[in-house]
Amino acid sequence: MLRFLGRRVLATVPALLGVYTLVFFVLHVLPSDPALLISEGSASESQLESLRHEYGLDRPLWRQYADELGALLRGRLGRSIRYGEPVSRLIRSFLPATLELALVGLGIAVVLGIALGTLAALRPHGWIDNLSTIAALSGVSIPSFWLGLMLIFVFSLSLGWLPVTTGTSWQQLIMPAVTLGLYSTGVISRLARSSLVQTLQLEYVVTARAKGLPPHAVVLRHALRNSLIPVVTIIGVELGNLLSGTVVVETVFARPGLGRLIVDSITYRDYPALQAALLVAACGYVLANALVDVSYCYLDPRIRDAQASYG
């Protein structure tokens, strides 16, 4: 088991290196001059030269790549142009709000998605099944920022049930988390439904029914647990999507988080902060998927045994 964990952690290293390489090349190689973008095209040639020198953009590309990677490994993410302080400090102050939002959004999506999927699987083509289909289709068709605005209009401005201001109370987290979680709720509910429908037809479930177990025990104790493996896979993917989805949701609800930092960094041409924030968000995506792989071992003894025999 420990050997598997070690192997999985090692496997994330090339993925993280790939993410760093992609972000580096997107921001350094594409047909744009970062110095020109930082100065918003208003600087003279000598000012551009000094900007390039200041940010090390006049060095060969491979040197910039290696130097920045070295600094990154030592935990140095550069200095923000806008705030004038180390980017690592900015990330530390912005990240908790994003994690909180993404995790609460994921919690809502998992609870609602599995509940809706289970009820839909128990009565295929019934009204709950139709409702979960509508939720899934709406989730992929409604832009999250528009949904957020509609929730503000209905629940804050019209009904007055929830505060529209940003803050740290749980009431202020509900609307952003629901906005963020709706897409994932649809995805999880459809997957939970199809997985449970298949599991309910397996022989051991028929045996459990034949033994005279009550229906809720058959579903909750025998079928649901075994149907959750594909759901766990998608939860990992969704956590990554939720982390990146905060970019839009944090803008709608004016929440100070990593997503907001990314958008503001583009607006203020703060490239060191943009690069670091993109890296952190993308690494979150990679790590979420690694976490899912590890969780398989706990959920499915067959995978655990297979890993042990390979190890």
Partner: peptide
Amino acid sequence: SFPAILLAIALVAAL
């Protein structure tokens, strides 16, 4: 493996 909206944002920021 890179989140879609983040990659689009990074590309637009660069282009």
